[in-house]
Design a binder for these strands. Structure first.
Lengths: 224, 224
DNA sequence: GTCTATAACATGATAGAC
DNA sequence: GTCTATCATGTTATAGAC
């Protein structure tokens, strides 16, 4: 929807702007980078920059979408490597962290809007539904393609929960000042080691009522 | 630390500003209210308002602290009523929601900074440590005063986790458009009904290694 | 119609006079 | 303590070049 039918010239300029903006955000942070800086970086006036991106947040939004696509490709490649549930979940989560590794300062800008129901850039907003659903779908695929596979009904509850867990991991990632965010990596591995072995238990008949209640809760939480 | 030793006159003006700001935030939202609006509401110049509050966020910070104190008082009153674990957890969580009920539009402003490690207003920042610790202490008290009481070691892990759960509930509360946020209330009750009966299991010897691993994980996550 | 530039506006924040 | 500039920055308006 972003780059459908545009003149190549225009597309190239837009691209230069995006790259310059992401570079500046990466180097100096989102708040610290002004739209005037971005325009100057590509030798362009402020007004011209606004012709291509209607707002500073729109640049983040574009990154958000592109980054999700990159994550999907990366995760699916990794998912082809193994059928082990624990490994597959690790592939999706670590794949995400690998994707956003250099963009930690931008992630903050994304989370900034999470608490604002009106904000179009919020990870919970209707406008970002596509990205969100694709991310959840990745967890669903990880569960579905495992051997033995996680049943579809359980996946419908589990996949969104795992996505929420991923958000939490990203939040930790942003705040993590250990070298290469090694702490977050360990935390993720520890959490998955703890949770993955429990998942098969959820298919046991004894777990049925518990699962049913959890599913109902989650449905209420995500209802509009 | 906020209102220690100040001239009564100054203190009153400050108070008028705070009240006016909160009233405007409540009525029209945080972003939609300008500092000029706030100043005008108390018949004061913009510069004068900034003499009392160094930033718009500082007003939110003051609310954050005051609101936490109100919550503590309310929760402790409720905790005196029952020794039942499930009831006590409900008292703390619903007590929080009751405290912030009218201030939903302000909560968004608080969450806005959660993803920014540099921001002094973040719920995870060093500057808000006091508020955070008091909130966690409330959960600790809820667990400790239950009959039978939750052992101290388990509480050290559980209380911060419950606080994280409260943050999630508040996030849901902000986005919740059902009348009186009834959906969030139900969600909280459902989650507590699900979790509270499981807590006694954590004291079982079989659960020991699992708990130990979870505790280690949480310690890593909160380490600086 | 596609692109670019300049000016102006609103708002959070600051400086300096009284 | 209070006020009146003034600034920086996200954003908008508008005029014109190609």
């Amino acid at each position: 929807m972003a780059d459908a039918r545009r003149k190549p010239k225009s597309e190239a300029t837009r691209r230069r702007l995006l790259d310059a903006a992401l570079g500046l955000f990466r180097a100096r942070g989102f708040e610290e980078t002004t739209m005037r800086d971005v325009a100057r970086a590509v030798g362009m006036s402020l007004g011209a920059a606004y012709y291509y991106f209607p707002s500073k947040d729109a640049i983040v939004m574009e990154y958000y979408v592109a980054s999700q696509e990159e994550h999907a490709a990366r995760a699916r490649a990794l998912l082809d490597e193994t059928r082990d549930l624990r490994q597959r979940l690790g592939a999706v989560v670590h794949g995400k962290l690998d994707t956003v590794r250099r963009e930690r300062k931008l992630l903050g800008a994304l989370f900034r809007s999470a608490g604002d129901p009106e904000h179009p850039l919020s990870v919970f907003a209707p406008s970002t539904r596509g990205v969100r659903e694709q991310a959840i779908a990745l967890f669903d695929e990880a569960l579905a393609g495992a051997r033995p596979p996680v049943p579809a009904e359980l996946r419908r509850t589990l996949a969104p929960l795992l996505w929420l867990g991923l958000l939490a991991a990203l939040l930790h990632f942003i705040h993590d000042r250990s070298r290469d965010q090694a702490r977050t990596r360990k935390l993720v591995d520890g959490a998955l080691d703890l949770v993955a072995p429990l998942l098969p238990l959820a298919s046991l008949p004894q777990a049925k009522p518990l699962i049913a209640r959890a599913t109902a809760l989650l449905e209420m939480a995500s209802a509009r």
